[in-house]
Design a protein around this nucleic acid. Sequence first.
DNA 1: CCTGGTACCTACTCGCGAGTAAGACTACTG
DNA 2: CAGTAGTCTTACTCGCGAGTAGGTACCAGG
Lengths: 211, 211
Amino acid sequence: MRTEGRAKRLPRAVRERQIMDAAIDVFSRLGFHAASMDEISDVAGISKPMLYAYLGSKEELFATCIRREATRMMEAIATGVEPDQEPDVQLWSGLRAFFGFVGENRASWQVLHRQASTQGGPFAVELSDMRGRAVSLVAALLTQSTKAPATTLEAESLAAALVGAGESLAEWWLDHPEEPAGVVAARLMNLVWMGFGDLVDGNVWHPPSRR
Amino acid sequence: MRTEGRAKRLPRAVRERQIMDAAIDVFSRLGFHAASMDEISDVAGISKPMLYAYLGSKEELFATCIRREATRMMEAIATGVEPDQEPDVQLWSGLRAFFGFVGENRASWQVLHRQASTQGGPFAVELSDMRGRAVSLVAALLTQSTKAPATTLEAESLAAALVGAGESLAEWWLDHPEEPAGVVAARLMNLVWMGFGDLVDGNVWHPPSRR
DNA sequence: CCTGGTACCTACTCGCGAGTAAGACTACTG
DNA sequence: CAGTAGTCTTACTCGCGAGTAGGTACCAGG
């Protein structure tokens, strides 16, 4: 990148998108602190002052990236889920949507998961906020579908565990990209819905036959 | 810290422990990059050159901390687990040991977990190695106890999900410290052993009556 | 062809933090 | 009461990276 002298003249909106894409790429590879504004501007194909003129400080840039990608991801999941179905089918469609997004947006996922969660800066707010929404969503699904009386605390902690399992499995998946998204999603579905107790006995969950 | 002028003269071994404790404290609060050697030496109650004289560079210091705490944790779990019992009981004792350790070593846990997900350092080796051992342990437990034929890949991914669920739940626990360790561990046990499918129907797992 | 506005640049400042040089204090050993 | 080994300090260097000052190229419309 950045071999030629001067960059082609482009409208601001387009440049901003390019910069954000470059920033996500660099942040995902190096992490927030190790990523330098010099490198981001380099990858984006422009000079540093442009960064500051358009996207503000490093923290602002990072927060903007987080917000954009978090929104994209939540929308992907919201679109994929089928709210009128049985609880297990809802969960299944949610998982499929989640792994689908991660598979097609690896860099975004890394920024969201790895970097944002570790930095104690002002963006931790953005991130734990989004994570909180995901947890609440699952917790609501549990509370609404369970027959046994369960405390809010209990539902929330289980939801946190499930979300963590999803994140961790997505992380594992990055190292084993040959597996299709559906297979990975199905494994997690079986784990959290059937449990090891059933799996050990050979009982598996599978989606209802296609409508 | 570091209000008086000169520090009391102490033997090297003792100083090293103090420094490591201070380092873990600072690393857990700020993370690797944001933590400065100045602050660590300050908290430890000594001056910076002592740090370098005893523990080497910042990266070496961090790696040493990781190694020490990771070893402590793995030992705590290995001590807690009961290898001759049924699979479910083995898992249960492992979970209890894990949450017990986290509850009593919050700072250590934060260093291990938060930094475990940041890639790019030479210490990532230490960490993913330890995490890998934990995953392998669980994977072995699964493979050995399951009747249905399962691929290595399948067992490993499920183990990764389980470990992630544990980590995430431990993280959640830090925000809800009023819950006892046993309760949190039991919730995770129920989730991964029984599954939501059973929990929704009111079926719960509980430990065998005390021998 | 000037006049402004917007995209874009080179070439700096400046603070922060990793790492060090060189020496001062303390305590034991003969 | 020297000598010396180990502890501990003040006071630096030095590079890296965030952020900026002060321009230059390019494209309107008059």
